[in-house]
Write a protein that binds this DNA or RNA. Structure first.
Length: 272
DNA sequence: ATAAGGACCTGCTAGC
DNA sequence: TGCTAGCAGGTCCTTA
């Protein structure tokens, strides 16, 4: 489910509760969610280690350890992290549990089991998770970079925005929201974007994501009450999930369409 | 080289 | 009420 703003929220909320905590034990209920190394090695190498930092890159989360190793995690569609006291029973789809030295457990829950963990050794380049193939963070874009990446492609803008090797962190929701806020049709080909549209995108991409990061802000207690999986973005979305409803800007009925294989919503009057 | 489609999974909803 | 098809915010792989 989560895209960059939600992953950022998860990191912000959980970081203070994890940094400095030691891992007493790792219980893996479903071996398939550990992509590398083998689930036994994964658990064995983590026992006794201590969390040093918690960072986000694109939609990836990384928990670094004081020994220099790092746990890389991608939540994909339905992955979520919670911190619960041991006495609270696990949910049906809890696949990995890190027992911590403060009596809590860091739990990884994932209904569809698309999410994955990787354990990367200190000094070893991470070529497994795909984190090395990410483009820049949306906050580090320059007009020249965007132009070079977008304006030669015949692909629809929506697909280009969602291409993690061009920009890290944008998914199906925010690609539509960005296109709407920049007043550009999501199906418009990259090579048809004008100079001023590229400049506008360079501003709207980070602005839009920052706006939703702010709107997603939540306390630890609220986060846990929502099971770590319900976000605050929905009341603020302008077009995503609102096909056949009136456009919030002009009242025109919003169009729902499949673009590049993904559902998309846009306003045919506001967006050109 | 790029696009389309399937695969990976479970759960929810709309429609019959 | 109960069944079923279709869909879900991600990514990777194969095929054409």
């Amino acid at each position: 489910m989560p895209e960059l703003p939600e992953v950022e929220t998860i990191k912000k909320v959980l970081k203070p509760h994890l940094v400095g905590r030691a891992i007493i034990d790792v219980i893996i209920n479903n071996r398939n969610v550990v992509a590398h190394p083998d689930a036994n090695d994964f658990a064995m190498r983590l026992r006794g280690q201590t969390f040093y930092d918690f960072t986000r890159r694109g939609k990836f989360l990384t928990l670094t350890l004081t020994n220099g190793d790092s746990i890389v995690l991608h939540l994909r569609m339905t992955g979520c992290l919670t911190i619960e006291p041991i006495r609270i029973p696990c949910e049906k789809h809890t696949h990995v549990v890190f027992l911590l030295d403060d009596g809590n457990e860091l739990r990884y829950d994932d209904i569809r089991r698309f999410g994955k963990f990787w354990l990367i050794e200190k000094g070893e380049p991470d070529t497994l998770s795909g984190i090395d193939k990410l483009g820049p963070e949306p906050f580090d874009l320059t007009p020249d970079y965007l132009k070079a990446k977008l304006c030669k492609s015949k692909k629809p803008l929506k697909g280009l925005l969602m291409d993690q090797s061009i920009i890290a962190g944008i998914g199906n929701i925010y690609s539509d929201e960005i296109c709407f806020s920049a007043k550009i049709l999501p199906q418009k080909a990259g090579n048809e974007l004008t100079e001023s549209e590229l400049l506008l995108l360079c501003r709207k991409i980070p602005d839009c994501l920052k706006y939703f990061i702010e709107k997603n802000e939540i306390s630890f207690d609220e986060y846990m009450l929502m099971g770590g999986r319900h976000y605050r973005n929905t009341p603020y979305l302008q077009v995503y999930g609102k096909a056949k409803n009136p456009c919030p800007m002009c009242g025109e009925i919003l169009i729902g369409n499949i673009i590049g294989g993904r559902s998309s919503v846009y306003c045919k009057r506001c967006q050109k």
